Measured scan of single mutants.
Amino acid sequence: MASQGTKRSYEQMETDGERQNATEIRASVGKMIDGIGRFYIQMCTELKLSDYEGRLIQNSLTIERMVLSAFDERRNKYLEEHPSAGKDPKKTGGPIYKRVDRKWMRELVLYDKEEIRRIWRQANNGDDATAGLTHMMIWHSNLNDTTYQRTRALVRTGMDPRMCSLMQGSTLPRRSGAAGAAVKGVGTMVMELIRMIKRGINDRNFWRGENGRKTRSAYERMCNILKGKFQTAAQRAMMDQVRESRNPGNAEIEDLIFLARSALILRGSVAHKSCLPACVYGPAVASGYDFEKEGYSLVGIDPFKLLQNSQVYSLIRPNENPAHKSQLVWMACNSAAFEDLRVLSFIRGTKVSPRGKLSTRGVQIASNENMDAMESSTLELRSRYWAIRTRSGGNTNQQRASAGQISVQPAFSVQRNLPFDKPTIMAAFTGNTEGRTSDMRAEIIRMMEGAKPEEMSFQGRGVFELSDERAANPIVPSFDMSNEGSYFFGDNAEEYDN
């Protein structure tokens, strides 16, 4: 993207840094990872977990959730003011799984939030270390993106479920800051804005008074975040219109849905970061690795190297396929839920299948599930090659597409044709070009129609051997075009429920 120079890199967003050079960025990201790792080690000690239990991804998720809940100030305040039966607002906890007599047992633990905050700050040299908290939120978000298709949420806001490739980060909490905003897809931002506008339509006082002023500035800020994701002048001009509207209503909703559809071809720039579970960072720190000293990046080879040398386990339900569970977590670790499966298959070195073909449910185990038949197995999170994460949407291309997802959002900077089903997408653009945004709409449609099938995206960008740390010898991959490109292809993934 041309304006790259004016933006802070995501590592800076990730670490609240002012302008830093590459070495400083690597050190501050490393410091953040160190903090998460030290916190995780301490929690495993508190909970008396064995090494194996500490490497269980379900335990990692519970521990991450506990610290996120302990620092969720708004919710904590709300819980104190609106006490609900049987919930102690000062405590947080969740299921911890232990191996007892050759069987997995679930144990519900409860801790004072104050105590968890103390352990977290102690692991982070006394700081609140917001960057580390956001990092864990993005890992949870990436896992949700890989596990669930947001059909219901899309339909509720009037969008087409086939636009799911635009929904990265749709389950990120509001408090995820600049680093969170960077990884949100165009569809996620559109959905947040539509929800806001709908509230304004239904509630006369939404934009009024002292609160209304705050609401208005939040609305304009979200519009600017979305505008910054678009790469064409016409899309940005249309966002200006939406932002400046005196009284946002149905016309703005129409414009936003139009823009979301246009992003299936004229893709937005959305950041991709490899955020790993805390149970990967903990053992690495415990083994003596100093992330701050060595430096770390979320968008280069580092996460690949770390996963190459990590042992992570997962509980497996009786009829689940461990290899499929591994694929789910591998995609989440690489922030690749909406990437082209052919690119992923090449990088991973084994075939990556669409969601609907995987015999696996989510990673988390519900409290009512029976533990008797639970097994555990090693997650295979290694890769054959590594590639640089991208934040450009890439230019655009036609490809055989599917009944489910009709476009992709690249996660890796790797040369390819970008699949999208042009006739299906263009069919949504018939007729409606009147109104105050008509010239911009016409211009956007013209650009979409001009998108050429034979153009290559990320020209000359390749993948790298894991021994090639400096990215000196790019390998331009070859793809098996007979395979499906979309992950949520004609899909039956479970729906995400809060």
Rank of each mutant, 00 (worst) to 15 (best):
A2W: 01
Q4P: 00
Q4W: 09
K7C: 01
K7H: 00
E11G: 13
Q12G: 00
M13F: 03
M13I: 10
E14D: 14
D16R: 10
D16V: 05
G17R: 03
R19Y: 05
Q20W: 00
N21D: 03
A22V: 15
T23V: 10
E24Y: 04
R26W: 04
R26H: 05
S28F: 07
S28I: 00
S28P: 00
V29L: 05
I33H: 00
D34A: 14
I36L: 11
F39Q: 05
I41T: 14
Q42F: 05
C44F: 06
T45D: 09
L47C: 14
L49E: 04
L49T: 13
D51L: 12
D51E: 09
Y52P: 09
E53W: 12
G54K: 04
R55T: 08
I57S: 03
Q58E: 10
L61C: 12
T62D: 01
E64S: 09
L68Y: 05
F71Q: 09
N76Q: 13
K77V: 14
Y78M: 00
Y78S: 01
E80C: 13
E81L: 08
P83V: 11
A85K: 10
G86A: 11
P89L: 07
P95M: 10
P95S: 14
R99H: 08
V100S: 10
R102E: 01
K103V: 15
K103W: 01
K103R: 14
W104I: 12
M105D: 09
R106L: 08
R106S: 12
R106W: 11
L108P: 14
Y111A: 01
Y111C: 02
D112K: 05
K113M: 05
E114Q: 12
E114I: 08
E115K: 09
I116D: 06
R117S: 12
R117N: 03
R117F: 08
W120V: 06
W120F: 11
W120Y: 14
R121K: 13
R121G: 07
Q122P: 03
A123Y: 02
A123W: 10
D127V: 15
D127Q: 14
D127A: 14
D128V: 11
D128C: 07
A131Y: 01
G132N: 09
H135G: 06
I138C: 03
W139Y: 12
H140Y: 11
S141A: 14
D145T: 09
T147W: 06
Y148L: 01
Q149R: 13
V155A: 10
M159I: 12
P161K: 06
R162G: 08
M163Y: 03
M163V: 15
C164Q: 05
S165H: 00
L166N: 01
S170K: 05
S170F: 10
T171C: 15
L172G: 01
P173A: 14
R174C: 03
R174M: 10
R175H: 02
S176G: 14
G177T: 02
G177K: 03
G177R: 07
A178S: 10
A178L: 14
A179I: 05
A181H: 14
A182S: 12
A182W: 05
V183Q: 04
K184V: 03
K184A: 05
K184Q: 09
G185E: 14
G185R: 09
E192N: 12
R195L: 08
I201S: 06
I201F: 04
N202S: 05
R204H: 09
N205T: 13
F206E: 07
R208H: 02
R208I: 06
G209V: 09
E210W: 10
G212Q: 05
R213I: 02
R213G: 03
K214L: 06
R216Q: 03
A218N: 02
Y219E: 05
M222K: 08
C223N: 08
N224G: 04
L226S: 14
K229Q: 12
Q231T: 14
T232M: 07
A233Y: 00
A233F: 01
A233P: 15
A234C: 13
Q235V: 03
Q235Y: 08
M238T: 07
D240W: 02
D240E: 15
D240A: 13
V242R: 06
V242Y: 07
G249Y: 09
A251T: 10
A251M: 05
I253S: 06
L256D: 06
L259D: 09
S262N: 08
A263E: 05
L264R: 00
I265G: 02
I265H: 01
I265T: 11
R267H: 05
V270C: 12
H272S: 07
C275R: 08
C275T: 14
C275D: 06
C275W: 06
P277Q: 11
A278E: 02
V280S: 03
V280L: 10
V280D: 04
A284M: 14
A284I: 09
V285L: 09
V285D: 07
G288V: 07
G288K: 10
Y289C: 11
K293E: 13
E294I: 03
S297G: 08
S297H: 05
G300P: 04
I301D: 03
D302G: 00
P303H: 05
K305P: 06
L306N: 06
N309I: 10
Q311C: 00
V312F: 09
Y313R: 07
S314I: 05
S314W: 03
S314H: 03
L315H: 07
L315A: 08
L315V: 08
I316E: 03
R317V: 05
R317E: 04
R317G: 04
P322V: 11
K325N: 11
S326H: 11
L328M: 14
V329T: 06
V329E: 04
A332S: 14
A332L: 06
C333R: 01
F338E: 00
E339H: 05
D340K: 03
L341N: 06
R342F: 05
L344N: 10
F346Y: 08
I347R: 03
I347W: 15
I347V: 14
I347Q: 01
R348E: 09
G349W: 09
V352I: 13
R355F: 09
R355T: 10
G356P: 06
T360A: 10
R361L: 13
V363E: 08
Q364G: 01
Q364L: 12
S367Q: 09
E369F: 01
M371N: 05
M374K: 10
M374G: 03
S376W: 06
T378K: 13
L379K: 01
R382H: 05
S383P: 00
A387P: 03
I388M: 01
I388D: 12
R389T: 04
T390P: 09
S392W: 09
S392T: 05
S392N: 08
S392P: 03
G393L: 02
G393H: 03
G394H: 11
N397W: 12
Q399C: 08
A401W: 00
A401T: 10
S402K: 15
S402P: 06
S407A: 14
V408W: 02
S413P: 08
S413H: 05
S413K: 09
L418I: 15
P419G: 06
D421K: 00
P423H: 12
T424H: 15
M426H: 03
A427R: 03
A428Q: 09
N432G: 04
N432F: 14
T437A: 13
T437K: 11
S438P: 08
S438G: 15
M440G: 09
R441A: 07
R441M: 06
A442L: 12
I445T: 14
R446Y: 00
R446K: 13
R446L: 04
R446D: 15
M447C: 09
E449F: 02
E449N: 15
A451H: 13
P453L: 13
P453S: 11
E455H: 11
S457R: 01
S457E: 01
F458V: 04
Q459F: 11
R461Q: 12
G462T: 03
G462R: 14
L466D: 00
D468H: 08
E469Q: 15
E469P: 08
E469N: 08
R470H: 00
A471W: 01
A472M: 04
P474I: 01
F479V: 10
M481A: 07
N483V: 00
N483L: 13
N483S: 02
E484Q: 09
G485Y: 14
S486N: 07
Y487G: 00
F488K: 01
F489K: 02
N492D: 10
N492Q: 06
N492H: 06
N492V: 01
A493C: 04
E495Y: 08
Y496F: 15
D497L: 06
D497E: 03
